[in-house]
């Protein structure tokens, strides 16, 4: 099994897909960070132009907010859980004030999570699809599947070795997305922002987002959390792609089918949000980081656990279908 996986990994490396993907990534990350830097500066200018005055010192605003929070915190009738959520915001603000960091200044570590949040529904899955789409279908279209399947190795082991190699490459890919987006954006912003505190841990209770259970963690930890979710999503996409790759004969049709599913899924989510079945579609559940940032839910009542379970079911079913089909299929190329 080790040897088989080693083979598959070598094939993936020699195909130089990773280079293509990194190239794509580099371009997108650069464009995106440039855009953010540009928008940030434009906003500042615009504000000054419109109000005719200097941007109010962020420290004043933060101080005022801090005073407000503290006076409210002192109110005895405030429930304790609300008070702890005040405490966390106070802590966060204090950090920014003490370290003299304007919270709205873009930093490398806030960029990498933002990139992940933006990319998780389309761009990052696309990279995984490029990586995985030809794993099986490519062997069919090059007809090398014949020399692969006429060895003294059962077919399921061959597919498993492909999956393991893909698993490793996908893991490394997610890591590279994180590293590249951090490094490139640092070149633009010049700030790491590695220890800034971030508020997370929103829970959903009876359809409302609850902020009482939030916790304050540092940026780099938050980045790891976000990328862990990206990683999970990527593995799910990889599994689904592997299935499609088993089912079709050419890598281009595999890529086509998956792109159609991704984009079509977004439309579905947009137009048919009321339709109950939409929430069971994998595309609707890709945006896991939004549960950490506490933003609005696409379909009411969806939770992180729900999305994760739905995605896991998709991945497992895909793998089962893939393995069954790969073992049964007659090779006629």
């Amino acid at each position: 099994m080790t040897a088989l996986t080693r083979n598959e990994l070598l094939k993936m490396l020699l195909k130089k897909k990773m280079l293509l993907i990194l190239f794509f990534l580099l371009i997108f990350v650069s464009l995106f960070s440039y855009g953010q830097q540009y928008a940030y500066e434009r906003n500042l200018e615009q504000f000054e132009a419109e109000t005719g005055e200097e941007l109010p010192d962020w420290r004043d605003l933060a101080d005022r907010r801090l005073d407000d929070l503290e006076s409210r915190r002192a109110n005895e009738s405030i429930p304790e859980n609300v008070r702890t959520s005040f405490d966390r915001e106070i802590q966060q603000l204090t950090y920014f004030i003490e370290n003299d960091i304007n919270p709205i200044t873009p930093t490398a570590f806030s960029f990498n999570t933002e990139f992940a949040e933006q990319g998780i529904v389309l761009f990052i899955p696309l990279l995984v699809i490029i990586l995985a789409a030809d794993l099986v279908s490519g062997e069919f279209s090059n007809r090398t599947v014949k020399i692969l399947l006429t060895r003294a190795v059962p077919r399921w082991k061959i597919l498993l070795s492909k999956f393991l190699a893909l698993f490793m490459m996908t893991t490394i890919l997610v890591f590279l997305v994180a590293v590249l987006s951090t490094l490139v954006s640092f070149l633009f912003f010049g700030e790491w922002g590695i220890n800034e505190p971030v508020l997370t841990g929103f829970t959903l209770s009876e359809g409302t987002l609850m902020s009482d259970s939030t916790i304050l963690i540092s940026r780099w930890r938050y980045t790891i959390l976000i990328y862990s979710l990206v990683w999970f999503v990527s593995i799910v996409i990889a599994s689904i792609t592997l299935m499609v790759s088993v089912l079709v004969d050419s890598s281009s049709s595999a890529i086509g089918i998956l792109m159609a599913a991704l984009i079509g899924g977004q439309f579905l989510q947009f137009f048919l949000a009321d339709w109950e079945l939409v929430q069971y579609f994998f595309v609707t559940n890709l945006d896991l980081p939004r549960y950490l940032t506490g933003s609005f839910q696409p379909v009411e009542g969806m939770t992180l656990t729900f999305s994760i379970l739905t995605l896991a079911v998709w991945a497992v079913l895909s793998l089962i279908i893939g393995f069954v089909q790969f073992s049964r299929r007659d090779v006629l190329v």
Binding site: G201, T203, L292, T303, T305
Partner: peptide, 8 residues
Amino acid sequence: YSVFITTG
């Protein structure tokens, strides 16, 4: 951990 902190 992410699952843990978001599950009320």
